[in-house]
Design a protein around this nucleic acid. Sequence first.
DNA 1: GTAGCAGACTTGCTTATCGCAAGCCAGCAA
DNA 2: TTGCTGGCTTGCGATAAGCAAGTCTGCTAC
Lengths: 165, 165
Amino acid sequence: MATDRRVRNGVPCPIGRAIDAVGERWALLILRNATLGMTRFEDFRSDLGIADNILSTRLARLVDLGLLTRVPYRDGGRTRNEYRLTAAGADLLPVLHALAAWGHEHTTPDEPAEPMRVVHRTCGHATTPGGHCDHCGQPVRREEEAWIRPWRSPEPIPLAAPVTG
Amino acid sequence: MATDRRVRNGVPCPIGRAIDAVGERWALLILRNATLGMTRFEDFRSDLGIADNILSTRLARLVDLGLLTRVPYRDGGRTRNEYRLTAAGADLLPVLHALAAWGHEHTTPDEPAEPMRVVHRTCGHATTPGGHCDHCGQPVRREEEAWIRPWRSPEPIPLAAPVTG
DNA sequence: GTAGCAGACTTGCTTATCGCAAGCCAGCAA
DNA sequence: TTGCTGGCTTGCGATAAGCAAGTCTGCTAC
């Protein structure tokens, strides 16, 4: 099963292995956008401003590594492919959250903006780095968690559910 | 103050800004090694197998961004520089921990090895993703946390303390 | 004085990757 | 048949990475 496949890439250190898998700019940005529910080639391309060939290569690699999977869908008469997170890809969420927290604390946007929030959808309160609700105290499952990116929209964005590849 | 300097790099998303700052292979590996207490050019170079000019460029960039700082030290008669984490650099620890957890779960080393552990130095038990001690339940401060990398040594490696730049 | 040392950084070059823009391809509709 | 769409491929120039040697600095030894 693709979702159970462990990337074998050698070094003893799990940090090193994770970096070998995803420690580069475009992979991380693609995974962020996939987490937001983005699935289509053109959407990734235009949102990220990435070259076709680079995007194509990166998507293929992430599929190969089992972090994304191609899902066929019908578009008019044609079968097209979209790209969705696998469980392994979705499990990078804590990395993305840690990056968000660090980015919020240590970097500054060009334009002042409400900061991004990670919230418990049910009650609207923030979640902690450990994945608990600030308000309820309970662990928050992925499907009850959302991002709010106020510079885009005040609506909570549910996190994309992983699919089995 | 260098430690209070926020990287200004534009995009509204803090994840995107964090990725712009550190979302590339060598920066992340250097920061991992700096967290382990590595400070010297030659040590980074030989451990990472990175080219001189690439390492030099990356170190300078991380210093420029305020994640590392050069600290003069005496070597025999000469003043040399070592590279140490700033507070901003040290605050990337949750990113490294998240990468470690993901790498452990989803990648496989070439040689079987005891996995890396993040422990509370005082009692020896593991710490949670939220930074609490599994055993004591208390939040664990950085200076009470250590990594154990059994493929290298069974000794806990204290995490490098940040210095003011 | 010169020669030698160590190690951080620089340099010149080759190789690899990225990015741009156009082209190709597949599967459909008219 | 042509035309459309959009994912992927291609050819090319630009940029970054990597290799290996050189330079620089501040010291010691002779």
